[in-house]
Simulated scan of single mutants.
Amino acid sequence: MKIHPKITPIYQTSVFKFEDLNELELYFGEPGSRYLYSRNGNPNSDELAAAVTQLEGGAGAVATGSGMAAIFAAVMAYCEAGDHVLCAADIYGGSSALLSQELSRLGITVSYVPFADLTTNLPAYAQPRTRLLLCETISNPLLRVIDLRAAANAAHALGLKLVVDNTFATPVLTRPFEHGADLVMHSVTKYLAGHSDVTAGAVVARTPEDAARLRQIGTLFGLTLSPMESWLAVRGLKTLRLRMEAHCRNAQAVAELLVRHPAVGQVFYPGLPGHPQHQLAAVQGAGSFGGMVSFRLADDTTEAVSRFMRASQRFPFAPSLAGVDSSLSYPAGTSHRALTEEQRQELGITAGLVRLSVGIEPAAELLADLQQALDAK
C-alpha cells in the first residue's frame, strides 16, 4: 500500500540505509537523489531550506542550528584567515560578539561602520582584503532601516559581497535579493518559525555556486538543523503571512500609543511619520513596518524600566522576539550586554531603552496593558 502524506513526516533518523554498493555510488554520483547521514542532509532540513529559498527568491539555502550558526556560515562562505569584514555598527549584539571575539581568533578582522556611512562613505572603512558588508534590513534594537539598493551598490563598487540579516523584516516585507544582496540570513527562531518553540537559522544564496558553498560549510562544520526543529519551522512558515499582518497592525497601534504617553521620551518605529527612514521603509517594506517597537522612557533609568516591567502583564520580559505572544526585552542588559558602556551610549542604547516584540493578541488588550504599565508610579 502506497502512502501519500500531505505533510512531510519527521525523518527522525541520523543515518539512512543502502541496499548495495550501486545505490551508494548513486548517492555520490547524483547529488540530492538519496540521503546518507542527517548532518549531510535530511528531508526535513532540506524542506525548510527549500521553503526559505522560495520565500526569498534565492538559488538555494542551508538550514542551521541557530541564527548565530547562520551568520557564521554566511561569513565563512566568503572569508578566510587574513580577510576583513565590514559590519554595520547597528547590529545584533551576538553578531558583533561573534565577529569581534571568535572570528578574530581565526584571523578574520572586522570594522564597524556607522549607519550614516553605510551607503555614502563605505570606501573610508574598506581594506585591501575586505570581503563583505554585513547589515540588517531593520536594525536591532533601534529599528533603523537601511537602503538596501544603495548599500548593495556601495559594496559592489568595492568588489564586496552584501550579506543581509532579514530577520526583523522577513521576506513578507522585504526581499533583499531584489535590492542587490548576495546572501540573506535569518534567525528562523524568530518570525519564520514564529511560536517560540524552535531554535534555528537559515542562509539563502543568490547564486547556485554560493548555495553549494553554504551547504558544504553546513555539513563540514556540523551546523545542520535537526529533523524535528526543521519540521516545526516548516509548520510555522505556513502561517507567516497571516502572522506578519497581525504583528505589523498591532505594532503600529502600540507605537502610536507610546508616542502620546508622557512617560515615554522617544519611540523608534519605522511606521511613524517622524521616523527618519519612514518613506524608505514604506517602499522597501511594501507598506508594512514590522512587529518590533523600541522606546526610551522619559525617566531614562534602570529603576524606571524595572517598574514598567513589573507593572506590565501582557509583555513579559523574555530576551528574544517574534513569537505569537508579545514580550519585551532590555537591550543594554541582554542582546548588547557585551558592548562597553561607551559603545552602547554611542549607539543610543541607554538605560531607559526597552524593546517590544508585539504579538498577535487582540490589540485592545495590549494597548490597555501598556497604558496601565506606563501610568504606574
Rank of each mutant, 00 (worst) to 15 (best):
S230H: 12
L220D: 06
E229M: 15
R235Q: 15
L223V: 03
E245A: 12
H247Q: 05
T219Q: 15
P208N: 05
M244F: 02
P208G: 01
T224V: 08
S230I: 06
A211K: 14
T219M: 06
A255V: 07
E229H: 12
K238C: 02
L232F: 09
L232D: 03
M244L: 08
P227H: 06
M228F: 05
F221Y: 14
L242G: 09
K238M: 10
K238D: 01
L257G: 08
M244Y: 04
G222S: 10
A255H: 02
E245R: 04
A251H: 10
I217A: 02
L240K: 08
A233K: 05
H247T: 10
M228T: 15
L240R: 11
L237N: 06
L257P: 13
Q252K: 07
L258I: 15
G222K: 10
E229D: 15
A212C: 05
E229N: 14
T224P: 02
V254Q: 13
L257V: 11
S230V: 07
L242Q: 15
A251F: 03
L214I: 12
Q216C: 00
G218T: 08
W231C: 13
V259P: 12
H247C: 12
R235C: 09
A233M: 04
A253Q: 08
A251V: 00
L225D: 01
T224Q: 15
T207S: 12
F221K: 14
P227Q: 13
A251C: 09
G218A: 07
G218M: 11
A211H: 08
W231S: 14
S226C: 04
T219K: 15
P208E: 01
V254K: 14
L240T: 06
E209C: 04
Q216P: 00
V259T: 15
A211Q: 09
T219P: 01
